[in-house]
Design a protein around this nucleic acid. Sequence first.
DNA 1: GTCTATAGGTGGATAGAC
DNA 2: GTCTATCCACCTATAGAC
Lengths: 188, 188
Amino acid sequence: MATDTSQRILDIAERLVQTRGFNGFSYADIAGSLKVTKASLHYHFPAKADLGQRLIERYERNFLAALEKIDASGKDAREKLRRYAAIYEEVLRADRMCLCGMLAAEYGTLPKPMRDEMRHFFDANERWLVRVLQEGRKAKVLRFSGTPAEAAQTLIGALEGAMMIARSYGDVARFKAVGDRVLEGLNA
Amino acid sequence: MATDTSQRILDIAERLVQTRGFNGFSYADIAGSLKVTKASLHYHFPAKADLGQRLIERYERNFLAALEKIDASGKDAREKLRRYAAIYEEVLRADRMCLCGMLAAEYGTLPKPMRDEMRHFFDANERWLVRVLQEGRKAKVLRFSGTPAEAAQTLIGALEGAMMIARSYGDVARFKAVGDRVLEGLNA
DNA sequence: GTCTATAGGTGGATAGAC
DNA sequence: GTCTATCCACCTATAGAC
């Protein structure tokens, strides 16, 4: 079911990674929040690296599901990009960083399976953006120089970076202003 | 002098923070690299938070010195921005993240003095960029919508974000492509 | 300034009862 | 599945000799 113990552990761990980083929390933090012992957590996720990996997998699934909802909206590419940026904004509004943006900073300390999952998330993001960018260019609502992949990578980097800095200032408006500027630069 | 023990400690700690994060290294790591004991390190920096704070202060001083050198070059605003981005690129080429970009991710776990110093770094960056952007707009070599502050924040975020993701892919060219694109968008 | 030694705490992880 | 109890490695930090 959707609210079993494993899922609740993932919910709490997800919030901890998004606010404090993978190296910034411990099983004791989760145990305290969930009111179980650390040993119980190890039953569900033997090692912290397992927990981390499952965390990214679930995050990507949920993220891609949100992108599919955007696709299903039938809106034009410009509006799709606005909704893409709005996802980031909502995460930031919850005082969180993007899970994978956070892990990108900690890349040097992550076990290989987590590194691979993290890049898979960014690759999937890029593929979706490339499709929307091409669609928008064809429909003449978007315009950009270089390849769609370069434009997609620029957009992802700009949003992740703006998000990270805006969070340090506790200033969602700062992120929104930057996001609007970046999207504006893609308008035909 | 410039190579006394304190400075050597800061050199090693700086590299560690830029590659592994502030929560990703310990005094034992520095001690191992410098071949002294952990206790000696505490003589120079009583607490890790002190080390972290002094690290940011020195990083900002060095960074601002590099920006002054760019100013002294007498080049136009467009070239100044290119050299600004080139600083990031050189850091990435050394397999490092920007010190403060790294700390921005760890913001939720940092002691207040480090948070304040970190934001001071970004504020100083923004002030320098605002000046160059205004200069470039006046000279008609740069063009951008919105306020210079918004354009500066967008640029900082885009470079920091692109840097962080490119590092996860071990791909400096990826950063360079994004950086060029972002600068191109500011050309008059 | 650097050392040895150690305190006091927390980290991830396991064994085995229930 | 969850618990108690425990292990051992590591962490930051300090005391005090040299």
